[in-house]
Design a protein around this nucleic acid. Structure first.
Length: 900
RNA sequence: GGGCGUUUAGCUCAGCUGGUAGAGCGCCUCCCUUACAAGGAGGUGGCCGGGGGUUCGAGUCCCUCAACGCCCACCA
């Protein structure tokens, strides 16, 4: 076949051209007729659709794409879907800000509602159906923008497999999985103290917590013995919860309090009698060694409350304010002092009151201490008692926990040390997985409850739909045996008002992407999957929860391998923040440097390693892409390669044997998900190939050494180029397919990954890597001699003396003609044998032809005046391919018409 | 408090099973050379975090310390 090389190759426009071509030709289409063993299946992370993509997305999705492409080229039928995680809090928050609305579930649906053109200062209250409509409207635009960016980035996903987590199909999967969990008692409902975000007004799971160091203060409160009036001093950081105090707790071995255990003390100000109790969790080192137990100040309070069977006396409501009504046992008049205040206001007021009544001693002592926050929240979490849905995750059962740890050990982790994070998380669980959220835009729980004759909800026996009805929305759908008229009526029913947390949906990403339950034929071809790529920050959430769901439903791991990518860091080594990341937009980078260049930067990272954002690397990537264009132009211009052409020349065989090593290393690296190393190996070889090999054989390829030498050079150049293009294809998909299109039918992305056997087959005999190495080194010495005296590389060389060992001189002898051509050696080329024991004597001496013009300063290596013509090499009379011969250098090149 | 990771040239990082310290960027000196000036050639630059060990030999293995980052922890 004949190559069609553009006159001026360019990177411009390749993204557009090839993303369209790949889509049109179905280059990345999953073939669902092939069986599980043929397939390579990726559980792509569905990015959260809540605005714009971040540089970090470009980074990590590129990693996965290189792996997908590598496997595709190795003959695997790649299942590479994309999903949009569009349900959940981020979308709700974005909708609120974007449209200036808030959801009020009590409002009726307004079919004519339109949001204000620009958000006003006051948020407009709208019904839940209206709110959901706006959510869906907003994510459509975002999702289109995401898809465009990912296509431009060159992700080789099969877009026909696209899913969204709010789609009916995903809802059906999530509801079906939940109902099965419920039927097997893996999901349950419980009324219990729950971590609660007062701004979002929803329960929060353990996995979504983060600690933040916050300023606080110890206040020393004075409790008085009911019988003896003796003071018991207690340090607390939360005096506002005094009204919720139900006990004091000290360590059972603490001698200071042993006499008090079992007695009652009065709380200051309120004068409520509470018991002094013993519990091993009390820390004698903290404060005065005795703690105030409130319902509920923190998770330790919950443990004490449960294990010591204490009463509930809660005063903080779901809105983060002190409840209007006092709890049992608290004086109503006194309570009025704080009723209705925010927690923060109540703290200030309570301290005043305590100071006034002598309830405190000393000044507050300022401290900083870790406080639990919802990871997206702005105010500390409170603990309120609510009814919630849970899925068992081993947090309460040691056997299940051990089993899930074992699942994690069976998974292959890249890098391996990430496994430790999984284990420490699972082993540290202290409760089951809270999956219900008191929000609006998510998958509803597919259950209803009966109302008894008094209109009270009967939670114990939820009404569930048949799986064939899924998905259902219990706020509009009706349970079997009821009519809509019975909704909310005594003896009737109500729908569960809650939605599933977004992790409860995305934990089913394999089932959603593989269409579990909807398309079992497909499901059987993709599950268990091969790879879960994701960030290491969501091991405890997404990775673990996916393992849990798969364990319950399929009794297996969801995938065989997990590849964790690191963070993008600012150049100053801080984690790149959203605000900074949005300054440098991904699309801007792709426009400025080209997609291949940005991918080059991204693919340099090792698995799991944080990487600095570095535009310099993008410039390097762009240069590599341009170099590929130019080198390919040269190689493809050396003439067509006959199908049976073999590398016969020793230096050509030498190159192919080096290339075989590179192929082997790149393959090994990719098999271990080390795309960065794979690319680095190919890249290093490529530059040597360009700088040394191409220079060495350039003239021979033109035919200066005869037809056979040219054939051997062309065959080697052609195979090396083809192999390099294929090894670069996973990283630089655009430029490689561009070059491929000049000389081959089809796409490089469907071409086979190069193999060692392929290199051997193209070689007429075994190659000695030393031949090329030594030839390149001698050529380098000749260049250096010219560079040292600031002469042009065209300068002719009148003599070369190489002193080296027998093995290396032997290797050099096999390449001597090419070295002389490339170095412009017109005079003597001597070799001097050096004993292996005398390596210090090795070296290369070069004598250059004198400069044309007399120079004032003589150069050290051209001291001897030698008469030499400036040009002496014979131009090739004919080239084997029959193309136009290269004209002699001294002849001015005429502006010729193209020869027919 | 427990665990994991990192520490190599001014910067970003390779360096795998121990065998004379590497790349790119930057900087310096050159070169328009018929694939490429959006190039090319050459060069400068390192007590491989500190200390101790094992070894003929340690950036690499062991111990220890330190700094930085992250994960986990029942943090009154």
């Amino acid at each position: 076949m004949s190559a069609t090389v553009p006159e001026k190759p360019t990177l411009e426009g390749l993204e557009q051209k090839f993303s369209e071509r790949w889509e049109g030709e179905g280059t990345y289409r999953f073939d669902r007729t092939r069986t599980r063993a043929d397939n390579y299946v990726i559980d792509t992370p569905p990015p959260t659709v809540s605005g714009s993509l971040h540089v970090g997305h470009v980074f990590s999705y590129t990693h996965t794409d290189t792996v997908a492409r590598f496997n595709r080229m190795n003959g695997r039928n790649v299942f590479y879907p994309m999903g949009w995680d569009d349900n959940g809090l981020p979308t709700e928050r974005r909708v609120q800000n974007f449209f200036g609305v808030r959801c009020d579930p009590n409002l009726p649906y307004d079919p004519t509602f339109e949001p204000p053109p620009t958000p006003g200062k006051e948020q407009v209250s709208i019904s839940r159906p209206n709110f959901v409509e706006l959510c869906k409207r907003l994510v459509v635009d975002d999702e289109l923008a995401f898809e465009e960016l990912f296509r431009r980035l060159g992700l080789s996903v099969d877009w026909s497999l696209l899913y969204t987590t709010i789609s009916d199909r995903a809802m059906r999967v999530a509801q079906r999985a939940f109902l099965r969990n419920l039927a097997r008692n893996e999901a349950y409902q419980q009324e219990a103290p729950t971590l609660w975000d007062v701004d979002f007004r929803t329960a929060v799971a353990q996995a979504e917590l983060e600690d933040r160091e916050m300023p606080g203060a110890y206040h020393r409160l004075v409790f008085r013995g009911v019988n003896d009036g003796a003071d018991v001093l207690v340090d607390t950081t939360r005096p506002e919860l005094l009204g919720a105090c139900v006990a004091l707790v000290a360590h059972p071995d603490d001698a200071r309090y042993q006499g008090r255990f079992g007695t009652l003390v009065h709380t200051p100000w309120f004068g409520v009698a509470v018991p002094v109790l013993a519990h091993g969790l009390a820390d004698p080192e903290k404060g005065t060694g005795i703690a105030m137990v409130c319902t509920f100040g923190d998770l330790t309070d919950v443990i004490w409350w449960r294990e010591l069977a204490l009463p509930v006396r809660s005063i903080v409501g779901r809105d983060g304010r002190i409840s209007a009504e006092p709890p049992d046992g608290v004086d109503a008049e006194r309570y009025q002092a704080i009723a209705g205040l925010t927690v923060k206001q109540a703290k200030a007021r309570m301290v005043e009151l305590l100071d006034e009544c002598g309830g405190t001693v000393g000044e507050p002592r300022a401290i900083t201490h870790p406080v639990k926050f919802y990871e997206r929240g702005d105010r500390p979490l409170e603990i309120v008692t609510t009814r919630q849905w849970y899925i068992r995750n081993g947090g309460r059962e040691a056997d299940l926990r051990a089993t899930l740890v074992e699942r994690g050990r069976a998974l292959r982790w890249f890098p391996a040390y990430m496994k430790a994070r999984y284990e420490s998380w699972v082993e540290g669980l202290n409760g089951d997985w809270l999956i219900s959220r008191q929000r609006y835009f998510g998958v509803p729980f597919p259950v209803w409850y009966r109302l008894d004759a008094d209109g009270e909800v009967v939670h114990g026996e939820p009404l569930v739909p048949d799986e064939s009805r899924l998905p259902v929305d219990p706020s509009t759908d009706v349970p079997e045996g009821f009519t809509e008229a019975q909704r909310g009526q005594p003896g009737g029913f109500v729908g569960d008002p809650d939605v599933m947390d977004t992790w409860a949906t995305s934990s089913l990403s394999p089932q959603v992407a593989g269409r579990w339950g909807d398309d079992d034929d497909l499901w059987d071809r993709v599950f268990p999957m091969d790879l879960r790529p994701q960030g290491h920050d969501i091991i405890r959430t997404w990775l673990f929860s996916t393992v849990v769901r798969s364990h319950f439903e399929h009794h297996s791991l969801p995938w065989h391998n997990a590849a964790l990518s690191g963070w993008i860091l600012d150049p100053d080594r801080k984690k790149m923040s959203k605000s900074k990341g949005n300054v440098v937009t991904p699309i801007g980078l792709l426009e400025q440097y080209g997609s291949d260049a940005v991918r080059y930067w991204a693919s340099s990272a090792r698995p799991g390693v944080d990487t600095a954002f570095d535009e310099g690397q993008m410039k390097v990537g762009r240069r590599l892409a341009i170099k590929i264009l130019n080198a390919s132009k040269f190689v493809l211009g050396t003439g067509d390669v006959a199908a049976d052409a073999r590398a016969t020349n020793p230096i050509d065989r030498s190159l192919l044997s080096s290339l075989a090593e590179v192929v082997a290393e790149a393959t090994t690296a990719f098999d271990a998900y080390d795309h960065g190393r794979a690319r680095e190996r190919a890249e290093r070889f490529f530059w040597t190939f360009c700088d040394d090999y191409v220079e060495l054989v350039k003239n021979r390829s033109y035919g200066v050494a005869g037809a056979e030498g040219a054939r051997s050079a062309s065959a080697t150049l052609g195979l090396a180029l083809s192999s390099l293009l294929r090894m670069f294809a996973p990283h630089l998909p655009f430029v490689t397919d561009e070059v491929w299109s000049w000389c081959q039918p089809g796409s490089v992305h469907n071409a086979p990954w190069p193999t060692v056997a392929e290199m051997h087959a193209a070689s007429a005999g075994p190659g000695d890597p030393l031949v090329f190495t030594v030839a390149a080194e001698v050529l380098g010495a000749i260049r250096k001699a010219k560079s040292d005296v600031k002469r042009t590389l065209r300068t002719e060389v009148v003599s070369v003396v190489v002193r080296d060992t027998e093995a290396r001189l032997g290797a050099l002898a096999a390449a001597i003609d090419d070295v002389k051509e490339a170095g412009r050696v017109v005079g003597a080329f001597e070799t001097v044998l050096v004993a292996d024991s005398d390596l210090a004597s090795t070296g290369v001496t070069v004598e250059l032809a004198p400069p044309d013009e007399p120079t004032i300063s003589g150069s050290p290596t051209s001291a001897a005046p030698v008469e030499a013509p400036e040009r002496s090499s014979e131009p090739p009379s004919e080239t084997p391919s029959g193309e136009t011969a290269v004209p002699p250098a001294e002849t001015p090149v005429p502006v010729a018409e193209p020869s027919a």
